[in-house]
Design a protein around this nucleic acid. Structure first.
Length: 463
RNA sequence: GGCGCCGUACCCAAGUGGUAAGGGAGAGGUCUGCAAAACCUUUAUGCAUCGGUUCGAAUCCGAUCGGCGCCUCCA
């Protein structure tokens, strides 16, 4: 399997440090607000990666952090007049609700920054010992000039970095304006911890170094996040971790491109800023949103539109309608050897596309082509029991990534629905169409749609 | 100024040297008591533009135009 590595700027053959086992860390949310659709795109792409690793049989340990202490969480909690814990707990819970709605698999471990203060302090102590960090006005900073590899991930030359407008060189009393803070001096009215390096609170970058190494070791396989984190966040993590251990921190860096909305950068002032909740309130299907976020390659900018959600919903519907056909079309007398061929080819195409740096569009092309070929056979010849099983098994494999397909079928034990459908069929047979339409209306109110086909009545629930 | 992503049909989107996957929408059709759904057919002599290399280029090289991002706490 090939995977693009930001560190080398190339696609590389994926070879975990320990054979058969993958250790992965991804930067999770800062819980100062509801996650927006751009945040969620990144998490969906990480979900696709973890699902593909599992598909390929790796034993996976995936750790995701939750940043529950930083400038924004503190400021917002303060503004609302609640404690930091109370404030962040609500948004953390909301985040995991969003993840469930989008069918994101839970990482093996979720790590909260505020529960790992001792581990962070330990790192700071070691960096001080090695003279990679220094104290200044109660804060502790990382001395970038002492870490020659600084800039290797982002391919930036530290000497050529422009100092941003927001940071006046003399605003901080740092040796070098590019040095970043490891430990912040306490401020009146802000949460702080009494620790061996003094009272204060951690800088943002520190948690990811501390928690990833605690759970995954000094060196691990994959570290992911949005492209905006390449610099400075991930660059700083490398400086912190490798500064302490001297060992290579991460083998493969996995970064997801941003999404834009209607071709423009998402921003609250433009009115094109969406959270998942906003979209669900408008009546959009969370699985269609999952499909939309999933179906563009993770290293390409994704243009998110409401129209796109509807297109995704239609694509998903057509796959599920196909599966309905597979389950309900008339029985063939014998198995069709063509079906095995079609499935085998489709699966091979699907897998080789995914192995090629998670080429999900190519993989989906294989899925839809299989649907097309199989539809023609099922419509014209019906399906043998063994054919049905094989089709559902293969689509079950596709669904290991999509997690949006109806493989099981509807609840056929709903006696009332069954009775109504039967009653309508009887009415139709007696050419009592008024009665039949009446029953169809009743079923529709229960959320059941009927399809009259040559092979009998099919029904499904409205999504 | 430095670093990076991108430009393929009405919309979304694969394809990185061998003659344009797939999805949506539109149009036509099949089925049907009707409707809906489903299914089938169809839709780029063309891949931002201009040069070049090649038997052959969306793919490689050069230039140009355009969109987006990062360059100290933003996924």
């Amino acid at each position: 399997m090939l995977i693009f590595n930001t560190l080398t700027g190339r696609e590389e053959e994926f070879q975990p440090l320990q054979s058969g086992r993958v250790r992965m860390y991804t930067c999770g949310p800062t819980v100062y607000n509801f996650a927006h659709i751009g945040n969620l795109r990144t998490f969906v792409s990480q979900d696709l990666l973890r699902r593909w690793l599992l598909y390929r049989g790796y034993q996976l340990t995936h750790v995701m952090n939750v940043t529950d202490v930083d400038d924004k969480t503190i400021a917002n909690a303060c503004e609302r007049g609640v404690s930091l814990e109370e404030y962040t707990a609500g948004y953390a819970q909301a985040f995991f609700e969003d993840c469930r709605r989008l069918r994101l698999q839970q990482p093996e471990r979720v790590a909260y920054a505020t529960r790992h203060i001792p581990e962070m302090v330990e790192l700071v102590e070691k960096l001080l010992e090695k003279n990679l960090a220094y104290r200044q006005d109660g804060s502790i900073y990382y001395r970038i000039s002492a870490f020659p590899k600084y800039g290797r991930l982002s391919h930036l030359d530290p000497d050529q970095l422009q100092i941003g407008h927001s940071v006046e060189a003399d605003e901080y009393s740092k040796d070098n304006p590019r040095d970043f803070v490891l430990w912040k001096a306490p401020k009146e009215g802000e949460p702080s911890w009494e620790t061996r390096v003094g009272r204060g609170r951690p800088g943002w970058h520190l948690e990811c170094s501390a928690m990833s190494m605690k759970y995954l070791g000094d060196s691990f396989d994959i570290h992911g996040g949005g492209v905006d984190l390449i610099f400075p966040h991930h660059e700083n993590e490398i400086a912190q971790s490798e500064g302490v251990t001297g060992a290579p921190f991460v083998k493969y860096w996995f970064h997801t491109e941003h999404l834009v909305v209607d071709g423009e950068k998402m921003s609250k002032s433009k009115g094109n800023f969406y959270t998942l909740r906003d979209l669900l309130d408008k009546g959009f299907d969370p699985l269609a949103i999952r499909y939309l976020l999933l179906s563009t390659h993770y290293r390409k900018p994704l243009n998110f539109t409401l129209e796109g959600i509807l297109q995704a919903a239609a694509a998903l519907r057509s796959l599920n309608n196909f599966l309905l056909l597979v389950r309900t079309c008339r029985d063939a007398a014998a198995g069709n050897p063509r079906i095995g061929e079609i499935l085998q080819q489709a699966l091979a195409r699907f897998e080789s596309a995914m192995d090629d740096n998670l080429n999900i569009s190519g993989a989906l092309g294989a899925v839809f082509d299989a649907r097309y070929d199989l539809n023609a056979l099922a419509e014209s010849q019906g399906l043998f029991a063994g054919d049905r099983e094989r089709i559902l098994t293969t689509f079950g494999k596709f669904n290991a990534l999509l997690d949006s397909l109806d493989l099981e079928g509807e609840d056929t034990t709903d006696a009332q629905v069954r009775e109504l459908i039967q009653a309508r069929s009887d009415a139709r047979r007696n050419r009592d169409f008024k009665r039949a339409d009446e029953i169809r209306g009743q079923l529709l109110q229960r959320g059941v749609i009927l399809e009259d086909t040559r092979d009998g009545v099919r029904w499904k629930r409205i999504g």
